[in-house]
Amino acid sequence: MEVRTIKVFTTVDNINLHTQVVDMSMTYGQQFGPTYLDGADVTKIKPHNSHEGKTFYVLPNDDTLRVEAFEYYHTTDPSFLGRYMSALNHTKKWKYPQVNGLTSIKWADNNCYLATALLTLQQIELKFNPPALQDAYYRARAGEAANFCALILAYCNKTVGELGDVRETMSYLFQHANLDSCKRVLNVVCKTCGQQQTTLKGVEAVMYMGTLSYEQFKKGVQIPCTCGKQATKYLVQQESPFVMMSAPPAQYELKHGTFTCASEYTGNYQCGHYKHITSKETLYCIDGALLTKSSEYKGPITDVFYKENSYTTTIK
């Protein structure tokens, strides 16, 4: 009895394709271990004539594949690729409408935090270190965002349907971005203890939790000093293409032309909904596939993004 075979390709990165001759009487799992086709788990399936010449994702289970996976995804987590594939199996079914010149995501599976993050990423200057993220990001900007969303979920250790947080998501993504040249110098002034300067680099240099107003941050924000008295913390120097200011959701007025974009969060910790506000020729609110415009805006804002380049204080 002759062994019926077909020729397929296996890959971990969709760049390096490895030619395989597979036995049609055995499952993919018996031949390769966990195997995925377009995100779908085909591990328990036997090869079919229609699979001839198709590319299958496999887990990096030998040295060659491990090197290829690390170079593309910059992670050695053995569960990463499987999590990416199972997320992709959902995100490829989502709709990605162009809204006001940006790629958004039609609401499904509690994905409003991903839509808000995706919209924000198209408006701030950011370059990702893992080629996987950078490639998928370019495709997302062009309207094909399924891979990018699935990668975000995998890097953030999230599953489809789980509630997510924009600030946490951005923080994970910033860790995989090139923020080497970003720098922030802060000064804390206390009447009792004097003053202390701190220099922050990388992710810490672009994120701040405690106030939404970048102007206020430049002037000074009140913080408790270690001595128990009130101290003032203010920005001395900022070198970065953008800054992200966050605070627990509270009524906040966004003035046209003073910011790049913002995240609105309605609801409580267990259950809520994100919308995205962007400042173009007027203010726009993007909620999944829905767009509304207004000249002014007041609502429960939790993150505001500002364009920056270089700032030095005039406070002496």
Rank of each mutant, 00 (worst) to 15 (best):
K183T: 14
C261T: 02
Y28L: 12
S246K: 00
N309T: 15
T198K: 14
C112H: 03
Y72R: 09
F174I: 01
T211K: 02
F242P: 02
N178H: 08
S295T: 13
N147M: 10
K218D: 01
K229A: 13
S294C: 11
V185E: 04
T27A: 12
F128G: 02
T258Y: 07
F128D: 04
E162Y: 03
H256I: 15
K219H: 08
K229H: 10
Y57E: 05
L126S: 03
T258K: 09
C225S: 01
H48L: 14
I105R: 05
I315N: 15
A140D: 03
C156D: 00
E168Q: 14
V21F: 15
Q222P: 13
G210M: 00
P131C: 04
K307P: 14
L153T: 05
S294K: 11
Q195D: 13
M209A: 15
T11W: 06
E308L: 09
G220F: 02
D13H: 03
Y36S: 05
N147H: 14
Y84T: 03
E264K: 01
K298W: 12
G33I: 05
R4Y: 13
R139A: 14
A132Y: 03
N61R: 13
V188N: 05
E168I: 06
T211P: 02
L133V: 04
I301A: 00
N61I: 14
Q20M: 11
A177P: 01
N49P: 14
L88Q: 05
G299D: 04
L235W: 00
A142Q: 15
T266N: 09
M245H: 00
L200P: 02
G257Q: 06
E68P: 05
V42A: 10
T103P: 03
W94T: 04
G82R: 13
V221I: 14
M209I: 15
P248D: 08
C156A: 07
L290D: 15
Q196E: 10
K293Y: 08
H90F: 12
V58P: 05
E162P: 00
V189G: 04
A231V: 03
I301R: 01
V243H: 02
N110A: 05
K255A: 10
K127V: 11
A140V: 13
T120R: 02
L118Q: 05
A154Y: 00
T43E: 13
A247T: 06
D62R: 08
L37N: 12
T103C: 08
H90R: 11
G29H: 08
Y73K: 04
T302G: 02
K44R: 13
Y36H: 06
G299P: 02
M207I: 08
D77T: 05
Y138E: 15
L37T: 10
V189Q: 08
D303Q: 00
A177Q: 02
V188T: 15
G143F: 01
F70K: 09
H90T: 11
L163Y: 15
T314R: 15
H48W: 15
F148D: 02
G220R: 02
S295H: 13
K255Q: 12
Y265P: 02
H176P: 02
T35I: 12
R139C: 12
I124K: 03
Q270N: 15
Y252E: 06
T226D: 10
G299S: 04
G164S: 04
L254Q: 00
A108N: 06
G53E: 13
Y84K: 04
S79T: 15
C182E: 02
V42C: 15
F128K: 03
T159S: 15
V12R: 08
A177I: 02
A140N: 02
I45N: 14
Q134E: 10
G257A: 08
V12S: 07
F80S: 02
A146H: 07
Y265I: 01
T10F: 11
A145H: 04
G101V: 03
F56W: 03
N100T: 08
R184K: 02
I105Y: 03
K298H: 13
T199G: 05
A146S: 13
Y208V: 12
Y265E: 00
P97F: 09
V42E: 06
A231C: 08
D62L: 07
E168P: 03
K93F: 11
E253T: 11
S294G: 10
E144H: 11
K233L: 15
Q20A: 14
D13K: 05
V206W: 01
Y274I: 02
L81V: 14
V67F: 15
T258F: 07
K218W: 06
N309P: 15
Q196G: 06
Q134N: 10
E308T: 11
P130L: 04
T10H: 07
R4G: 13
I45Y: 12
S279R: 02
L17N: 09
K229S: 15
R184Q: 07
G220L: 01
V243Y: 02
V185M: 06
C182I: 02
A40G: 13
D13R: 05
G53R: 13
K280I: 10
Q238C: 01
M207N: 02
K93S: 11
R83M: 08
L65Q: 08
K233M: 15
T314K: 15
D41V: 09
F9H: 14
P248K: 10
S213G: 04
V160R: 05
A136L: 03
E71N: 09
K307F: 09
K7Q: 13
P78F: 08
